[in-house]
Simulated assay, not measured.
Amino acid sequence: MADKKDNNQDSDALIPVTDEQHNETTTANTASPASPASKKAHRHRSRGGLWTILLLTLLLTLALAGAGYWYVYQRQSDNQALYDAQVAQQQKLEVLNRTNTTLQQQLKALETSKTELAKSVNDLVAKSETLSQQSEQALAEIQNMEGRRPADWLIAEADYLVRMAGRKLWLEQDIRTAIMLLSNADQRLQELTDPSVLPVRKLIAQDIQMLQQLNPVSHTSIALTLSGLLAQIDNLPLDTFEKPEQEATKDQVSESVSDWKQNLAAVWHSITDQFISVTRNETPVEPLMSEQQQWLAREQLKLQLMQAQSAAMNRQNDLYQQSLQSATALLEKKFAVGESEIKGFLREVQKLAAADVSQTLPQQMESQAPLQELLESRVEKVFGQGASAL
């Protein structure tokens, strides 16, 4: 209790006294002496004010502490956001640096390409100028030809015709077309009215004469004729035995019952007349050909005609004649010579056998090489570059 009193006294001593309270106290002290009840009430009021002040101080302290915490939290949040923003900016800066480096490399590559392109353009311009100069020179040479170019073309055309005649002769064995092409080549050279081409025209005339002396038989026509004959073999009649047809009996049996006497007599005569039959044949007996033998005869004839066809295309006259002779022998032996079909077939085979399919072609044209040399000399004289200037 003494401690409480001391504390109260200390608290009373700590409570500040205002001027009004001091005056009231002074007035009360001067007016009347203080009673114990008034002192006790005064102490209670002093304690309530003290607690109020302490509570306000505590609240103020808590508010300050909360404000400080909020400030520190906001400060840390701002710092983290600022750090994140700095990191993002740093990453963007690195991306921009890499992009800048790439763009610089591309710019260098573009500059290099530009330099190479400029160099290529300069080369092309130089080549274009060179080609332009060559074109102008060629035009000048063409203008200075003084009508000689058509003559060169006539010689080139004659050379082409002679070459075509050689191809027709050696590849297709077409003598008539080769002669026609050589004649056309001679006409082209004749249009030149140039005495320098007379030796070549002489050689062309010799080539034409040599081809005209060859056998003019058409091997293609012979081969086609043989193909037509081959298609007819299956329809040719063979020389085989044919059973004669039986003659109809004179006495016919009727179906009427009333004619029984005539029917009986007809049957009796039929039995007695055909009981013994004698036939007289004075020609030599030939064996009957089976179906296999008939097929074999036709195939043998086809083989001989196909062999003759191959020999005709290959200019083998001996084999051609031998095959046709064998075909003729087969026709006379195995086929019905008396029939009109066989007679016509034999005439065609004999007509083909009269042809000579042998033919010796020349190894080269005498006029081809001199004509080519003449063309090259003319071209070289005009352009100065040989045949490559065409």
Rank of each mutant, 00 (worst) to 15 (best):
E242F: 03
S35T: 01
M289A: 09
L230E: 10
E111Q: 05
S135L: 08
V379F: 05
L124Y: 08
P244V: 05
V162Q: 00
A336Y: 06
Q212G: 02
L390S: 12
K351G: 12
G147W: 14
Q90T: 09
W70G: 09
Q363K: 11
S358P: 03
A65H: 04
V267A: 08
L229T: 10
N97Y: 07
M164T: 01
N8D: 05
N314H: 15
Q74C: 10
E136T: 09
N8W: 05
T328K: 04
E339C: 06
L169Q: 06
Y71K: 15
L182M: 01
A151K: 15
A231H: 09
L331G: 01
A178E: 02
M210N: 11
E282M: 07
L301S: 01
V349L: 12
I204K: 03
R149P: 08
Q372F: 06
S254D: 07
V72G: 14
Q246C: 09
Q322V: 11
I233D: 11
A231K: 12
F275S: 10
A63V: 14
R347E: 11
T220S: 14
L110F: 05
Q86A: 15
N281F: 02
L169T: 02
K333W: 04
N235M: 11
S340Q: 07
T193Y: 12
N100W: 03
L211P: 08
L361T: 08
F275L: 12
I276D: 14
L361H: 07
S46E: 06
A265V: 11
V200S: 02
E341P: 03
V357T: 10
N281Y: 10
D356Q: 09
S32K: 03
D318A: 05
T220D: 15
A369N: 14
Q309V: 08
T25G: 04
V285E: 07
F383N: 00
Q292P: 04
R298W: 10
L330C: 01
D6Q: 13
T220L: 12
D10G: 13
Q359H: 06
Q321V: 11
S227Q: 15
L371T: 01
P33V: 04
L62Y: 05
A231T: 15
I142E: 04
Q309F: 10
S77L: 13
L171E: 14
D78V: 06
S218L: 09
K40L: 04
A336G: 12
P33L: 07
S310A: 14
D194Y: 10
A389K: 00
E24G: 00
L107N: 06
Q190C: 05
N29K: 00
N97E: 10
E348N: 15
L110K: 05
Q294E: 15
V285T: 09
L110T: 03
V197L: 00
S183I: 00
M313V: 12
L371K: 00
A118D: 10
Q209M: 08
E341Q: 13
Q293G: 03
S128F: 03
F345K: 04
V257I: 14
R167E: 12
D84S: 03
Q300T: 12
P370S: 04
S132I: 02
Q212P: 02
E129C: 04
Q309C: 10
K92H: 11
M313Q: 15
Y71E: 13
D19A: 12
L82P: 06
K5W: 06
Q137C: 00
L330R: 01
Q321L: 05
R298K: 13
A140V: 06
E247W: 02
N317G: 04
A118G: 07
Q322M: 12
A158Y: 02
T52M: 03
A158K: 01
G384V: 00
P199T: 04
